[in-house]
């Protein structure tokens, strides 16, 4: 116990000195568990997040838009893949993480439990959801765990591109026909509040925040990040003539911040508990893909057992 205390002291001293913690370093069990929870949730979010946008790949309105969207959804698969690998450095396997997702034990970002109803949703998701992810991930790029920090730096570059293409769709539609303008305003109305919820509960209601901040897993609170997102996004909405669906929204000259109305936390908890518009569909789609892929994975294992290698490669 005394030895453990010494370790903990040294660990916290390293964190306070701004050093990164690497997989082989000693770390408190709670630090490890919190990171596994956060990072696997993050990986699951990338993968489940492919579904709402994937819903429009076959209906993209031009070949260029189709290719950009395909590339974006493919990037998200890459992010998931990269994050699963980074999480595996903490001593958990991808299979274990996947099992938790498919059994409904693990969470993923609530935002992906909302439906994509029109093409404008594809623009608004890129703009708002990837935009919110950037705010969060820019902070996480400085997180104290080395593999997570490096994953975030790499991923953030692509998220910036995602946001740009999303905003470009929004801007194009906002100066388009009346039908397009209606679609894009409607999409903003539906996605605005769920996007604000992405940053999590108020700091006072966030049970994990204390340790996470002390150990510099997170460097900013949920409310700080949410405010930053609102400050960035409101002028972007106004620039293309869109209205943020919040009657209480107003600019505070003194603080330099946009003040906004209260989030509907009942909705937040309702969706987290499984009763959002698409929770069942999302999980069902992941399970279906997993089950229908079982014979493929079994074949790959059988082949590797028989030959000790992949085809076309030397043993």
């Amino acid at each position: 116990m005394a030895e453990d205390n010494g370790k903990l002291e040294r660990f916290e001293a390293r964190i306070n000195a701004g050093e990164k913690i690497e997989p082989k370093d000693w770390m408190p069990e709670r630090y490890r568990q919190q990171l596994i929870r956060m990072m696997s949730q993050h990986a699951h979010s990338e993968v489940v997040g492919m579904l709402p946008e994937g819903n429009w790949i076959t209906r993209a309105p031009s070949l260029r838009r189709k290719m950009v969207l395909l590339a974006k959804v493919q990037d998200e698969a890459g992010h998931g893949h990269y994050l699963y690998s980074a999480t595996e450095t903490l001593g958990v396997t991808r299979e274990e993480m996947l099992e938790k997702l498919l059994s409904g034990k693990a969470k993923y970002s609530n935002i992906f439990n909302y439906p994509t109803l029109t093409w404008a949703d594809i623009g608004v998701i890129g703009w708002l959801v990837d935009g919110a992810a950037i705010v969060n991930q820019t902070m996480l790029a400085k997180t104290s765990y080395g593999p997570y920090s490096r994953a975030m730096i790499r991923i953030c570059k692509e998220e910036n591109f995602h946001k740009k293409q999303g905003y470009e769709i929004v801007a194009t539609m906002a100066r388009g026909t009346p039908a397009q303008r209606k679609m894009v305003q409607d999409a903003l109305n539906r996605w605005w509040w769920p996007t604000l919820m992405m940053f999590g509960p108020h700091d006072k209601d966030s049970p994990n925040s204390g340790d996470l901040l002390r150990w510099k897993v997170k460097l900013k609170t949920n409310d700080e990040l949410r405010q930053r997102f609102v400050d960035i996004t409101v002028p972007q909405a106004h620039a293309v003539g869109l209205t943020i669906p919040d009657p209480e929204l107003r600019y505070n000259e003194e603080t330099g911040h946009w003040e906004f109305g209260e989030i509907d936390w009942d909705e937040f908890w309702r969706v987290i508990r499984g009763n959002g518009p698409c929770n069942k569909e999302r999980l069902a789609a992941r399970r279906k893909a997993h089950q229908e892929g079982a014979w493929v994975r079994a074949a790959a294992e059988a082949y590797a057992r028989k030959h000790g290698r992949e085809p076309g490669k030397a043993a």
Partner: peptide, 8 residues
């Protein structure tokens, strides 16, 4: 896209 047997 999103429905493959493995993420790869």
């Amino acid at each position: 896209c999103g429905h493959g047997p493995i993420l790869e």
